[in-house]
Design a binder for these strands. Structure first.
Length: 156
DNA sequence: GCCAACGTTGGC
DNA sequence: GCCAACGTTGGC
């Protein structure tokens, strides 16, 4: 089984890499995703052991802030069942879950943010989905080449 | 705060 | 099944 790579977006005000770092065992569900294309990735394609870039969006410095790892593959997102959750969706039931999540574990926080502007400037990373204008998908596949190239930028 | 881009909803 | 209206995302 080939290890795959992903980029997960989050608004740091809602959930940042710092939040993940202080969770028990530094593990958290990646829940609240309410977009069908992203849901399909979480349900069908994101697998145990996959690498994930943690991306901060809608903030001063938008970009990749670190790495985490998938420690549990797709399972029903329980926030959809919880009427008190902002992510509640009455269409989703235990018998027929509509929304899915995975669990991620913190691996590393970069010493600096790899800015979106940097990703766009360098060719190996400029092909990343996140660099595309108007790209709102919050769960994005990343190629092995893009992963390596972005990691290189982090080391600079 | 603006607004382009896009996903979803719902009337027909 | 089309598509206009609407709501949301998210960079700038």
């Amino acid at each position: 089984m080939v290890k795959r790579y992903w980029l997960f977006k989050s608004e740091p005000e809602t959930f940042s890499i710092q939040h993940l770092m202080i969770m028990a065992n530094q593990v958290s569900p990646w829940d609240g995703v309410r977009n069908f294309q992203a849901r399909n990735f979480l349900r069908d394609d994101v697998k145990l052991g996959d690498g994930v870039f943690f991306y901060h969006s809608s903030t001063k410095e938008t970009g990749i802030v670190g790495i985490c790892e998938v420690v549990r593959a797709g399972y029903p997102d329980r926030t959809a069942f919880d009427p008190s959750s902002p992510y509640f969706d009455m269409r989703s039931t235990a018998e027929k879950p509509l929304w899915y999540c995975v669990d991620v574990k913190f691996v590393r926080k970069f010493s600096r943010v790899i800015l979106l502007s940097e990703l766009k400037q360098h060719l190996p990373t400029a092909t990343m989905m996140v660099c595309r204008r108007g790209m709102r998908l919050s769960i994005q596949p990343v190629t092995a080449d893009e992963w390596q190239a972005a990691l290189k930028l982090a080391g600079k």
